[in-house]
Amino acid sequence: MPGKHDERQKLGSPRAARRRTTIDDVAKLAGVSRQTVSRAINDKGEIDPATKERVLEATRTLGYRPSRFAQGMRRQDSVTLGLVISDLSNPYFAEVAVAVLEVAEERGWHVIVCDSRNDEGKEQEALDVLSRQADAIIGHCSSPDDMLARHAPGMPLVLLERGVDQTRFGSVGIDTEAGMQQAFAHLTGAGHRRIGMLDGAPDDRPSARREHFLAQVRLYDLPVGPDWVVSCDRHSVSAGERGMDALLDAHPDVTAVVGFNDLIAVGAIRTARRRGLRVPDDVAVLGFDGLALGELVEPPLTTLSIDKRELGRLAVEQVAAQLSADEKPAAEGDARVRPELVLRASA
């Protein structure tokens, strides 16, 4: 699952920095007309070699990349969208990929999907490939902004699950604060005060979900400290099983657990039942994702559901707005998806 980017990170003025470099910028820097820039980058005749080199140097300096979208419109070709997913074996990311594919295909766009397998090196290799083959990129990317700019120079780029204050590129975030508010309103309303969490990030790089969890602990004045949060080494069922064992060993009086994602929460249920605990009578378990598989486990998983379709729609709209000055995204500024609590039998 996502959420590995700290929402507190500030990276300057994102709205200003997200502006795509245009042919007019290149023309101004090179001191030539738009037509001369077009002839230079398309290797047309009737242009002085020194002028051509000055234009090309300006494109390199500014990171300008000619829009394949505009060229495609002239040729009546389709837009090609690159999609970088961090782990297609995780059902959450698979559902996000399907959502982006569906929304893009409604526009007649083609989509190339790359799986980085949670590896920054593979992620950057994917960006290198897509910067040559696609018109724009949407992605779950963990690389910092300067690295993204280096591997996708001049590309329209929208990052999934980063807040607007975390990147200078386009972004669609998850409102984890609103999600944790709903989780605690439900759990404390049911009488729970000893609430633990299984996080999906290491202790030295805590997730935004952990920070909002601890903020709610303080708000409700619960007898819970940071040691009631256990880090899971993977976003998987088995990691959730191990994390739940550690949490129960340290705090056997825990009565409710919030999982970083649904897979970890399912693992928590499995461990609780293996240890003879009834879910939710002895310990309630709540996930964070809204995966379809949550309805298939026993007991069915209560979860904070993320609308993957909305996530895909907002991302594609931002791409379309970057590709065409005539189109504006429906949600400008801080585009975020608000999780919604889905009550089932586990909590």
Results as ranks from 00 to 15, higher is better:
5 H>A: 08
5 H>Y: 10
6 D>L: 13
6 D>E: 11
9 Q>A: 14
9 Q>G: 12
10 K>Y: 14
17 A>S: 15
21 T>H: 07
22 T>M: 09
25 D>W: 05
30 A>G: 02
33 S>Q: 09
35 Q>L: 11
35 Q>N: 12
35 Q>E: 12
35 Q>I: 15
37 V>D: 10
43 D>I: 05
43 D>W: 04
43 D>V: 05
44 K>M: 03
48 D>C: 06
49 P>G: 05
50 A>V: 14
51 T>F: 02
52 K>F: 12
53 E>V: 12
53 E>G: 07
56 L>F: 03
60 R>Y: 06
60 R>E: 12
64 Y>N: 06
65 R>H: 09
66 P>L: 03
67 S>Y: 07
72 G>P: 06
77 D>V: 04
82 G>K: 05
85 I>N: 07
85 I>V: 15
90 N>D: 14
92 Y>S: 11
93 F>E: 00
103 V>M: 08
104 A>Q: 14
107 R>N: 13
107 R>Y: 15
108 G>T: 10
109 W>H: 14
112 I>L: 15
113 V>F: 10
113 V>E: 07
114 C>N: 07
114 C>V: 08
115 D>P: 02
117 R>H: 14
119 D>E: 00
121 G>L: 11
123 E>C: 07
135 D>P: 03
136 A>N: 01
137 I>H: 01
140 H>L: 11
141 C>H: 04
141 C>E: 08
145 D>N: 15
147 M>D: 10
147 M>P: 02
148 L>Q: 11
150 R>K: 15
153 P>N: 03
164 V>A: 10
164 V>D: 10
167 T>F: 12
169 F>G: 06
172 V>G: 09
174 I>G: 00
174 I>W: 00
175 D>Y: 00
175 D>S: 01
179 G>W: 02
179 G>C: 09
179 G>E: 01
179 G>M: 02
186 H>K: 03
192 H>L: 06
196 G>D: 10
198 L>M: 00
199 D>H: 01
199 D>N: 03
202 P>Y: 04
208 A>M: 01
211 E>Q: 15
212 H>I: 01
216 Q>E: 13
216 Q>I: 04
217 V>Q: 04
218 R>C: 11
220 Y>G: 02
223 P>M: 05
228 W>G: 02
228 W>L: 08
229 V>F: 15
230 V>C: 07
237 V>P: 07
238 S>C: 08
240 G>P: 01
241 E>F: 06
242 R>T: 07
244 M>C: 06
244 M>I: 03
247 L>S: 04
251 H>S: 11
253 D>M: 12
253 D>A: 15
255 T>C: 13
256 A>W: 08
257 V>G: 00
261 N>P: 04
262 D>F: 08
262 D>S: 06
263 L>A: 09
269 I>A: 03
269 I>L: 12
269 I>T: 09
272 A>F: 05
273 R>E: 13
275 R>L: 00
278 R>S: 14
282 D>M: 00
283 V>E: 01
286 L>Q: 00
290 G>H: 02
295 E>R: 13
296 L>W: 12
298 E>F: 08
300 P>S: 15
301 L>G: 09
307 D>R: 03
310 E>M: 13
310 E>I: 06
312 G>L: 05
314 L>T: 01
320 A>S: 11
320 A>N: 07
326 D>I: 04
328 K>H: 12
329 P>G: 13
332 E>D: 00
332 E>R: 05
345 A>E: 15
347 A>N: 15
